[in-house]
């Protein structure tokens, strides 16, 4: 039967994801059984299926494990400072409104240190697609407690178990005004890909939370086995409830994970509201920033 040695002819360029990732940077830094790569694959597939001009798609990341996504995707990619992916992306979008700007970062980055930016971008309905990879822990720094760590879960800074309450992210996003809110695990590859595809076509603040396994820290510190064991856990405990009341989708330690599309509504985005308001108040005197960017020279 076939063994690895029989496949030396398979080239990285043949992999269907090759046009969307920086193959010269593979293998990536993520641990064995980490799920971030799967989320990237799903996003790349959604991009491929979207028919979008990828030259106009930017991906912005903050710091942390998921923060590396911006450097692995073959798009205009910005690996910024810790927690500032959303404001950086805001500048990018407003500087060149024709861009489709995606924020791809982790829970610690986007709702820990970057929480203030998160709620305000949602409030403004800023035209950003925010993909938050939630592994319940600070991975890159060694397993410290996160704003998403479920009660009683052990982390390296809560060695006796976490006693802080965790964010319920879909509720947070929805209550701040996000117009598309969904949650999937990285086991839900088809549904996640579909959600990415849907969100890519919407405007305004779109938020997709993806639960992923962190084997090296979250699973190890909590004696949950490998990332594969966590994937099995998702299989058995994920519950799909589209349109669920986001107040009821909080995640308790090793408890059910409610997945689905919770919010999907058309609301004018920041840019639409700004244009409409200025047109109304300033009339023909209003000069919007051109789609290709602020005043360029020559």
């Amino acid at each position: 039967m076939s063994t690895p040695a029989e496949h030396p002819e398979v080239l990285p360029e043949e992999h269907p994801v090759a046009p969307y990732i920086r193959t010269d940077r593979m293998p990536h830094i993520w641990c064995p059984t980490c799920g971030i790569g799967t989320v990237v694959k799903c996003f790349a597939t959604a991009l491929a299926e979207s028919g979008l001009d990828l030259n106009k798609v930017s991906v912005v990341s903050g710091i942390g494990c998921t923060g590396r996504v911006a450097g692995y995707m073959k798009l205009d990619g910005f690996h910024t400072t810790h927690g500032r992916a959303i404001p950086f992306a805001t500048g990018l979008k407003l500087g060149r409104p024709e861009l489709l700007v995606t924020v791809f970062s982790g829970d610690g980055d986007l709702v820990g240190i970057g929480g203030n930016h998160f709620i305000h971008a949602a409030r403004r309905n800023m035209d950003l697609l925010v993909i938050l990879v939630n592994n319940f822990i600070y991975g890159m720094t060694g397993g410290q407690n996160a704003a998403t760590t479920p009660l009683t879960a052990k982390t390296s800074t809560m060695p006796y178990g976490n006693f802080e309450r965790a964010f319920n992210l879909p509720q947070l996003a929805a209550s701040c005004g996000a117009t598309y809110v969904a949650r999937w695990t990285c086991l839900h590859i088809r549904r996640l890909t579909k959600a990415f595809g849907e969100a890519l076509k919407r405007r305004g603040f779109r938020f997709i939370e993806v639960i992923t396994p962190c084997a090296t820290l979250y699973a190890r510190l909590n004696k949950l086995g490998s990332g594969l064991d966590l994937m099995r856990f998702y299989h058995d405990n994920a519950e799909i409830r589209h349109g669920a009341d986001t107040r009821e989708v909080g995640i308790a330690f090793q408890d059910r994970i409610v997945c689905g599309k919770f919010v999907d509504e058309e609301q004018p985005s920041f840019l639409e509201m700004m244009h409409e308001h200025y047109r109304k108040t300033l009339g023909s005197k209003y000069v919007p920033t051109p789609p290709e960017g602020g005043w360029l020279h020559e």
Binding site: R84, P87, T289, G294
Partner: peptide, 30 residues
Amino acid sequence: PLMGGTFIQMEDELGSMAAVVGASWTGTKS
């Protein structure tokens, strides 16, 4: 708004500066 510029009042100075860096990468002077 009369000359094709965009001003945004951010939530704090951390965000303001990050947005300026982001916008500059679109070629817009920021």
